[in-house]
Amino acid sequence: MINLGTYLDVRENSGAKKLQCIKVLNKSKKKAASIGDSIIVSICQKIIKKKSKIKSKTATAVIVNVKKTVKKKNGNLIRSGKNTAILVNNQKAPLATRILGFVPYEVKLQGYSKLISIANKCI
């Protein structure tokens, strides 16, 4: 349940620390974004580094975890303790070089197969 204004955490090493959703993309019938949906975010906090990859204040991101329980296609229910996202570019590739933890299978269905190859696990 990611809406306009929702704060998200980052689970990779691109340099961003805290995000805020400013637009939910491809929203037709559904009201809020969930796992696998892409959003536009503003970067609220950065990790202080000299060589940061992120230069603009906004970026596109894919949602990886949500606090709200989501029903998967195989009947499993999944829920997590945090709302998290991963920053991506226009070619659906991640800005980061390392992803912490697993990536859900729904992300792969949306065409982000490069995320899956970097992540160490896919559920």
């Binding site: 689970r11 975890n65 329980t69 499993n76 229910l77 999944i78 829920r79 997590s80 303790g81 945090k82 912490l100 933890g101 697993f102 559920i123």
Partner: peptide, 11 residues
Amino acid sequence: MTFVRNDSKVF
């Protein structure tokens, strides 16, 4: 039911 903790451990 699957639960993902903040340290990304899966239950």
